Simulated scan of single mutants.
Amino acid sequence: MKSPLFLFGLLVLLNSCNDNVVPKPNAYLSLSYPKATYQKSSEALPYRFQYSVQAILNIKPRSWSDLQYPDLKAELNMTYQKVDKDIMRLFLDAEKLTYKHALKADRIEMHPYENKSKKVYAKIFEVTGDVASAIQFQATDSTKHFLSGALYFDASPNYDSILPAIDYLKKDIETLIETLEWKH
């Protein structure tokens, strides 16, 4: 005859096997960024815009500028050119840069922007995939000013890894374009 302790142990063991095992869900990296607040750009440029206080504005020769985001290891390089009856060439040159990424890109989406009262006509290009520049833009008044920009990260292009930062900086670029004003 089996001991009562053995039977009790066997009963506990059989009862414990009835629970379904549920695996833990995968953990996802949770990145949080500060709420964006904006400041006006320098008077030294032939254009003005608002940019994040998280960024550092560097003014370069020929009215070019960079916005550096040290915490995100990102930089928005902006090129300014005067329009001299060559607006189509300027657009084509800027779009060549965007479409150079087509080999590695999964998709390129263009989003137009227009503000007739400020004479700002722009396009934002979102380049999805492991590319060097995930967001690019071009803006003009169509007669005197042309500004193009490209966002770069100081990291190997791994789209999935930098996507939260891209989404965060996309809002800053949209704000830049929405607040863009030309000096005459």
Rank of each mutant, 00 (worst) to 15 (best):
S52E: 09
A165L: 01
F146A: 06
E109M: 11
L180D: 00
M110W: 02
V12I: 15
A134W: 03
M88G: 09
N158R: 13
R48E: 13
E95N: 14
S41K: 02
V22M: 02
H111Y: 10
Y121C: 04
E174T: 07
L176T: 02
T175N: 15
Q54L: 10
N115Y: 03
K170Q: 08
R48T: 14
M88T: 15
S41A: 13
Y113Q: 07
R89W: 02
V22Q: 07
Y28E: 10
K116W: 01
G129R: 03
W182K: 04
D86I: 06
F8V: 01
P112D: 10
L151C: 02
A44L: 11
F146M: 05
S32F: 07
I56C: 01
V53K: 15
F6I: 14
D130R: 00
P157F: 03
T79S: 14
D19Y: 10
E43P: 01
S52R: 09
S117L: 10
L45D: 08
D93E: 15
S41C: 09
V83E: 04
L11S: 14
P25D: 08
S42C: 09
L97E: 14
H101S: 15
A139E: 04
R107S: 15
A139I: 07
H145Y: 08
L45Q: 09
Y47I: 14
L7N: 11
S42W: 05
L57G: 04
D93Q: 14
E181L: 10
P25W: 07
Y33V: 04
S52L: 09
Y80Q: 04
Y28L: 10
K100R: 12
L103F: 12
V12P: 06
E178K: 13
E126C: 01
I162D: 00
D66E: 15
T143Q: 12
L163D: 00
R107K: 15
I59L: 06
I56V: 12
V22S: 03
F49A: 02
T175G: 01
I166P: 03
L13K: 01
S142K: 11
S148E: 13
K82M: 11
F146I: 05
P23Q: 14
S42F: 02
S16D: 05
L97T: 12
D71T: 09
D106V: 08
Y80S: 03
K60C: 05
Y28H: 13
N158M: 11
Y99T: 12
R62I: 13
S133P: 00
W182Q: 07
K100F: 13
L10Q: 11
M78S: 14
L169N: 03
L67M: 11
L180G: 04
G9D: 07
Q138F: 10
S30P: 01
A122E: 02
N115L: 02
V120A: 01
K60F: 05
L147V: 08
M1I: 14
Q50N: 12
L45E: 07
L13D: 03
F125D: 06
E95C: 06
S142W: 02
S65T: 11
K170N: 11
Q136W: 00
W64V: 01
A55I: 07
K82F: 10
D84V: 13
Q54H: 11
